[in-house]
């Protein structure tokens, strides 16, 4: 299991489009990808779970990946969030 803390920088927070792009990108990994935020765990492969987390710009979240390709999954997840999720 690997994890990393990152800060969300896109203006609208984790909303429809960024959440959708992110969930799709995570879906291709075998490992589980979890977002830890405000004491809860959210499945990062589910757009709806990410939206329900209501994560705003400037918030710090922890990404946790667990499985055979966990390092690749974590690297891409962190890179996507730090670069503003394409916004």
């Amino acid at each position: 299991m690997v994890s990393k803390k990152v800060t969300l920088v896109n203006a609208q927070g984790f909303h429809m489009r960024p959440a959708s792009v992110f969930a799709q990108a995570m879906a291709k990994y075998t490992s589980s990808v979890t977002i830890k935020f405000n004491g809860n765990d959210y499945n990062a492969k589910s757009l709806l779970n990410i939206i329900a987390a209501c994560i705003k710009c400037g918030s710090e979240i922890e990404l946790v990946c667990d499985g055979p390709d966990e390092n690749e999954a974590l690297a891409e997840a962190a890179q996507m969030i730090e670069s503003g999720l394409g916004e």
Binding site: M16, A27, K45, L48
Partner: peptide, 12 residues
């Protein structure tokens, strides 16, 4: 298009 993403959400 967001509607499609939601209904195709594996969790849902």
């Amino acid at each position: 298009l967001g509607h499609i993403a939601i209904i195709r959400d594996p969790f849902m």
